[in-house]
């Protein structure tokens, strides 16, 4: 008891001394000092995040075009929003995006978790395999887009060759990037190839966080491996899996670089995900006001979905 109060007295004194010293040396209060430290960050945040966002919102209500800055800006109200939300082309782009997001997330989660589960078994050489599996993730999307264009090449592409080898069909009989039905899957395959390792890494962290003694307790409690998986492994790794899904979902909703390099949205508009439509409107047609409105719609959609999802995630975590 004595020891406790003595030690708490020491801490109390140590805390009380600091502001006094600061005041004597610099004439600054703690509050001033705190503001001094965070001001650069706040200014930076305002300049490169908050201001552009507010400016975009403003532009989305006008006829502004970035390539004709001298044309007088007219306030249009919610016109752009109305025309975007009733435009069938936009809805087509949204469908393409949804197809891309859903399939990549499903494939990456299933494969990623499966790989993590295998790697977690700590077989011989699992460290080397982890590194090898992680390689695609470390490449730049531009590089990946470019060399998958080669892999998908009907005459000389390795992908076509391998498919031909296993199915017996002629390698040049199908074009992954040029076919209306195949190209949406071509971009899903590339994204899954590149980002499954990322999901695996997060799932692996989740699996490693489950202590061995829980499995030992289950072992003594006569739980089969199957039951251990469903009642321990999966529920305890679930928050991690959900986190990976969230990251991949948001990331792929705004996918641009890789798809742009692989297909540029084609053939036709079969792989034209929302961000490509947006880029075309903004930097090819220079419809700045219109594309601002579209960007805001996308932003609100992702933000809303992510929020609902995070609520669900927190619920799972607090279970």
């Amino acid at each position: 008891m004595n020891e406790l109060s003595a030690s708490s007295r020491i801490t109390y004194r140590a805390v009380m001394v600091r502001p006094g010293v600061a005041r004597r040396i610099r004439g600054l209060s703690d509050r001033t000092l705190a503001w001094l430290f965070i001001t650069p960050t706040i200014v930076l945040l305002l300049a490169i995040n908050i201001f552009p966002l507010l400016w975009t919102i403003y532009l989305s209500f006008t006829n502004y075009r970035a390539n004709r800055a001298n044309v007088p800006t007219i306030w249009l109200g919610a016109d752009w929003y109305q025309s975007i939300l009733t435009d069938p082309d936009i809805w087509a782009a949204m469908q393409v995006t949804a197809h891309f997001v859903i399939w990549t997330v499903v494939i990456e989660t299933v494969l990623g978790f499966g790989l993590a589960y295998l790697i977690d078994k700590k077989f011989r050489g699992h460290g080397m395999w982890t590194t090898i599996i992680l390689l695609p993730m470390m490449l730049s999307p531009a590089v990946v887009g470019n060399f998958w264009t080669f892999l998908y090449q009907p005459q000389i592409g390795l992908f076509n060759y391998v498919v031909a080898f296993f199915t017996g069909r002629a390698a040049s009989s199908f074009q992954m990037l040029g076919d209306v039905t195949l190209s949406p899957w071509a971009i899903v395959i590339v994204d899954a190839w590149m980002w499954t390792p990322y999901v695996m890494l997060i799932c692996l962290a989740g699996l490693r966080s489950i202590p061995d003694y829980i499995y030992e307790a289950a072992e003594v409690d006569r739980a089969s491996k199957w039951r251990q998986f469903w009642s321990i492994t999966l529920p305890m790794a679930l928050p991690f899996i959900m986190l990976a899904v969230l990251f991949r979902g948001i990331e792929n909703f705004k996918m641009f670089d890789m798809v742009n390099l692989l297909t540029g949205g084609g053939p036709g508009s079969t792989t034209e995900v929302a961000s490509i439509t947006l880029k075309r409107a903004a930097f090819e047609s220079w419809r700045t006001g219109y594309s601002s409105a579209f960007a805001i719609i996308l932003f609100v959609t992702v933000f809303g979905l992510a929020n609902i999802y995070v609520k669900a995630l927190n619920k799972v975590k607090s279970r």
């Binding site: 003694y213 003594v220 006569r222 739980a223 009642s231």
Partner: peptide, 17 residues
């Protein structure tokens, strides 16, 4: 295997699910 031994184990770290 542990399951076939008919023993119960109380772990130091509780080991609850």
């Amino acid at each position: 295997a542990p399951a076939d031994r008919d023993v119960a184990f109380v772990f130091q770290q509780y080991s609850l699910y």
